[in-house]
């Protein structure tokens, strides 16, 4: 026992140390990618609207007139101190965008992941256990349809039926204006803030707003889980140790739950993390459909405005989020699968 936890601790520490070069490489890549674009970013976004003298002043303020190496060191320092400066186009503090819109994105991503896993896991387990039976075919079909259906279609359908027709849930926004204004901001994740405030009306309002976008996004992702879990369960059930367990007279229920399901879920953890990373950046369509103030739609907007400072800041955050998620995946994997630790 001691030996086991000891090696788990070593594993976690090693992984943590390895994060440093990983982050450094990622940041360098972001920096390089942002500089290889031809032209001068300030002129690109503001040219024609400001005088040449003003443009030069803006360039200087952004440090763009300094040597690349200095800019690079500055960039690394800014990231480490979580100081991203201001956007070029509308002069907003970038940190504010990241914190506010990032909080909204996080809220939606987590809720969507819960929906996706909540549907995908049980459906996948059942489909894999009863492979090629009717229930399997039906569940697979469900997975394919939800995966293939365009987001705006599902989103609009839900808005039309659930909001318009039935009037059950609000069709857009993160909360009603009064709630947005009254809930004190602590974590920048509205649902969490509402929970902390203890205001049950606000919490219910936030949840009501969250349901439709989360279901839309969750349905899109759950198909991946259904397929993956199904294949893993079906394959694990054919496995040698499953046969060996049956040969020892272990009951079928125990064989399926204890041996097949548990083992089949190990690779799912990794995919779950990857999907989470995708959700963070890839929820733009859902954000637009539901008028959700997420980071993805902000990124698109600033990309269109060629606002290099904002884009660099947001992309940096995405890169860091991917690092954190992959770290989490590794830790959970190590907890679940003893083979990983050695």
């Amino acid at each position: 026992m001691a030996r086991q936890s000891g090696s788990l601790r070593t594993y976690v520490l090693t992984r943590l140390v390895l994060v440093i070069p990983m982050v450094w490489i990622l940041l360098t890549m972001v920096f390089v990618l942002m500089r290889v674009a031809p032209g001068d970013p300030v002129t690109a976004s503001l040219g024609g609207r400001l005088s040449p003298a003003d443009l030069a002043a803006r360039r200087e303020a952004l440090g763009l007139d300094r040597p690349l190496l200095v800019q690079y060191v500055d960039y690394l320092r800014d990231v480490l101190t979580f100081n991203f400066g201001r956007t070029i186009t509308d002069n907003r503090p970038i940190r504010e965008i990241i914190v506010d819109n990032g909080g909204a994105t996080l809220e939606l991503s987590i809720a969507a992941l819960i929906v996706a896993v909540g549907i995908g896991l049980p459906f996948g387990l059942i489909a894999g256990r009863y492979r090629d039976r009717v229930v399997d075919v039906v569940l697979r079909l469900f997975g394919i349809i939800t995966y293939a259906a365009p987001v705006f279609f599902v989103g609009l359908l839900l808005q039309l039926v659930v909001s318009q027709r039935l009037g059950l849930l609000p069709s857009s926004g993160q909360a009603s204006a009064i709630v947005q204004a009254t809930v004190p901001t602590k974590t920048h994740i509205l649902a969490l803030d509402a929970l902390i405030s203890g205001d049950s009306y606000a919490l219910w309002d936030v949840i009501k707003h969250l349901i439709l976008p989360a279901v839309t996004l969750g349905l899109l992702v759950c198909g991946v889980f259904i397929r993956l879990v199904r294949v893993n369960v079906a394959q694990t059930l054919q496995g040698d140790y499953i046969e060996a367990a049956r040969a020892r007279g272990i009951g079928e229920r125990k064989v399926v739950v204890q041996h097949a399901f548990r083992n089949a879920l190990v690779p799912v953890i990794t995919v779950m993390g990857l999907q989470a990373a995708l959700l963070l950046g890839g929820a733009v369509l859902t954000e637009n459909t539901f008028n959700w103030p997420g980071l993805g739609s902000q990124l698109i907007a600033y990309l269109n405005g060629r606002d290099y400072a904002a884009v660099q800041g947001i992309i940096t955050v995405f890169a860091l989020a991917v690092v954190v998620i992959s770290l989490l995946i590794d830790f959970v994997n190590a907890l679940v699968d003893p083979r990983v630790r050695y």
């Binding site: 496995g239 040698d240 140790y241 060996a244 367990a245 083992n263 190990v266 679940v336 003893p338 083979r339």
Partner: peptide, 9 residues
């Protein structure tokens, strides 16, 4: 084959 007959978890 003894290698694959025990549940790795």
């Amino acid at each position: 084959e003894p290698m694959t007959r025990l549940n790795p978890l």
